[in-house]
């Protein structure tokens, strides 16, 4: 018990020191092309959004209208072979699936689903549709999904477009509670997905 508490105290002190200051949220103004997810991916918004200071992964970025629990538009910019969508939550027991440079577009929804099941601890996750789509001129997929978060009774829906370009994964996803928020945000999200420009191979 004492040993556990000692470890706990050490961890608490370490985390308190190591936790970085919360990065500021920033305004995304409409009709201006911006680079996202620390990458060469460029998108243009049709309305105001908020860029969250907190990133879901090292090469990712999220925008929201009202707060990420109500609407979240995420960009994953050029994930290379071996990269994960999110930061590892339990690398030893539940490692996140890794991007492979030779993935086909149709492999992407399964990678996305498995990543959500682990990182969001979402047991109720389903990919509802997959269809071919163009993303920034590249051949890719558009897929829809639904899930709920642990400890919540709210049903959520999502829609994403993704492609492999030059062996790297490029993905944009939008998700929100099914009730009101998905329909309220999807039009702008689709406009942003349609505006994307990806770097040449």
């Amino acid at each position: 018990m004492i040993r556990s508490l000692l470890i706990s105290a050490t961890l608490a002190a370490t985390l308190a020191v190591a936790t970085p200051a919360l990065a500021a949220n920033r305004l995304i103004v409409p009709n201006v092309s911006v680079a996202v997810a620390k990458s060469a991916m460029m998108v243009t918004a049709d309305r105001e959004w908020n860029k969250l200071g907190a990133r879901p992964g090292p090469l990712a970025e999220s925008w929201t209208l009202d707060g990420d629990v109500l609407n979240r538009l995420s960009f994953y910019g050029g994930l290379i072979n071996g990269a994960t969508l999110f930061r590892e939550v339990d690398r030893k027991n539940r490692p996140l699936p890794k991007v492979r440079a030779d993935m086909l577009p149709t492999d992407i929804p399964a990678l996305f689903e498995q990543s959500y099941r682990i990182a969001e601890n979402s047991g109720l996750f389903s990919v509802d549709s997959i269809e071919p789509a163009s993303i920034g001129g590249a051949s890719g997929v558009r897929f829809t999904y639904s899930f709920s978060k642990q400890g919540e009774d709210v049903a959520r829906k999502g829609e994403a477009v993704a492609a492999m370009v030059g062996g790297k994964l490029w993905l944009i996803s939008f998700e929100a509670p099914t009730l009101h928020y998905f329909d309220a945000g999807i039009t702008s999200a689709r406009a942003i997905m349609a505006s994307v420009r990806l770097p040449a191979k």
């Binding site: 707060g67 629990v69 049903a155």
Partner: peptide, 26 residues
């Protein structure tokens, strides 16, 4: 469904409007 949505909306207000350090620009 609305009983379930209310706490999520309330959490968004608390985290992204009431908490000044994390308030959204909009």
């Amino acid at each position: 469904q609305y009983r379930a949505l209310f706490p999520v909306v309330a959490k968004a207000v608390m985290e992204f409007q009431f908490f000044l350090g994390n308030r959204l620009p909009t």
